[in-house]
């Protein structure tokens, strides 16, 4: 199996050695995943970024659920924008920056989000969690002081089938409180199950 790429267009990301040189390496194209350039071969043109990340590159930080762009489990940041990797064609992501939950790192905002997901019980089976952490990171980066309605709206592309959204919302509010964006008292307002009159 051999492959060729001539992606001089993205030379800045790919560095030297594009074009014919890749023929010998059996590489179709490269993906910048979590800051590492990864060679992709044996992938088909119709393969989604999700398929290539998981099945070709072994990046299991993205989860495979609906493959229709509806559940958010495969969420990544593509050139800094939140995207469902199952709706992105992998070969078209050559030259783009792909960041999964693993690449968001254990520091800063993402560390706080992970910690609060645990502290607030926003994790049960955990399958949806990587996608949620990416989506919450995207939301709080763009809109640190998002109110409850805005948080619900922003996370509506991510589906959780076991914990329920109250705990996830509480985790996001707790991150905002920890960072001094909202008063601590507000962190346990409407999203907290114990405080809701309907107990939902």
């Amino acid at each position: 199996m051999t492959a060729v790429s001539a992606d001089g267009l993205d030379a800045a990301a790919d560095g030297p050695g594009g074009g014919e040189a890749r023929t010998d390496s059996g590489e179709s194209y490269r993906l910048n995943v979590d800051g590492f350039l990864r060679s992709v071969n044996a992938a088909r043109i119709e393969d989604s970024l999700l398929t290539v990340l998981r099945d070709v590159l072994g990046v299991t930080a993205v989860k495979d659920a609906c493959e229709q762009g509806r559940c958010g489990a495969c969420s990544v940041l593509l050139d800094g924008r939140l995207a469902a990797s199952c709706t992105v064609l992998a070969a078209d992501a050559d030259g783009s920056r792909v960041v999964t939950v693993a690449g968001l790192g254990g520091a800063g905002l993402t560390r706080a989000i992970r910690a609060m997901f645990l502290a607030e019980g926003a994790v049960q089976c955990g399958f949806c969690t990587p996608g949620f952490v990416v989506a919450v990171t995207d939301l709080l980066t763009r809109h640190p002081d998002a109110d409850e309605g805005e948080i619900r709206e922003a996370l509506s592309g991510n589906i959780c089938r076991c914990t329920g959204y109250g705990r996830i919302l509480a985790a996001v509010r707790a991150v905002q409180a920890e960072r001094g964006i909202i008063p601590p008292a507000d962190a346990h307002a409407p999203g907290n199950a114990q405080d809701r009159p309907d107990g939902e």
Binding site: M1, V4, S5, A6, G8, L9, G19, S28, Y29, R44
Partner: peptide, 16 residues
């Protein structure tokens, strides 16, 4: 590919 640098990616898998 060399004639249109950066514009074409050939994806080869399974002999196609």
């Amino acid at each position: 590919p060399a004639a249109v640098p950066g514009r074409v990616v050939l994806v080869m898998a399974g002999g196609t």
